[in-house]
Design a protein around this nucleic acid. Structure first.
Length: 108
DNA sequence: AGTATGACATAGC
DNA sequence: AGCTATGCCATAC
């Protein structure tokens, strides 16, 4: 019997596809993408997908639940991440985190 | 080849 | 309220 295939054949590709749908000036979270991908537990996989994501994927628009990017966004560092988002008009909080309630996508 | 780890999140205590 | 434990896919050694 076939064990129910609870995973899709192209998880990474699905995640990248969703990440590409993030509009300009908007941000989303790993868990949100994972949920859209079909499984809320793939949040970790989403992070890894970003690690191997092609330049087509605006991985800088993907942040964690706290509204800040991971410590290893890219060899450039978090400073570059903040600069990229600010360049898109993304508001930041005094804590240095992204104002998710203002740019979170899709809007709640 | 199998083990361990990693760009997170949720649930339980 | 904050900390611990678990789940997931893919890559690295």
């Amino acid at each position: 019997m076939e064990q129910h295939k609870r995973k899709q054949p192209h998880t990474f590709e699905a995640i990248w596809q969703l990440a590409r749908q993030i509009p300009f000036g908007r941000v989303t979270t790993y868990g949100r993408l994972a949920r859209l991908a079909g499984d809320p537990r793939l949040s970790r996989v989403v992070g890894y997908a970003m690690h191997g994501a092609p330049p087509d994927v605006p991985c800088h628009r993907v942040v964690n639940r706290q509204g800040e990017l991971s410590d290893a966004f890219s060899p450039l560092g978090k400073a570059t991440h903040r600069a990229l988002l600010e360049a898109e008009g993304v508001p930041f909080l005094p804590d240095g985190r992204v104002d998710l309630k203002a740019v979170l996508w899709p809007r709640p």
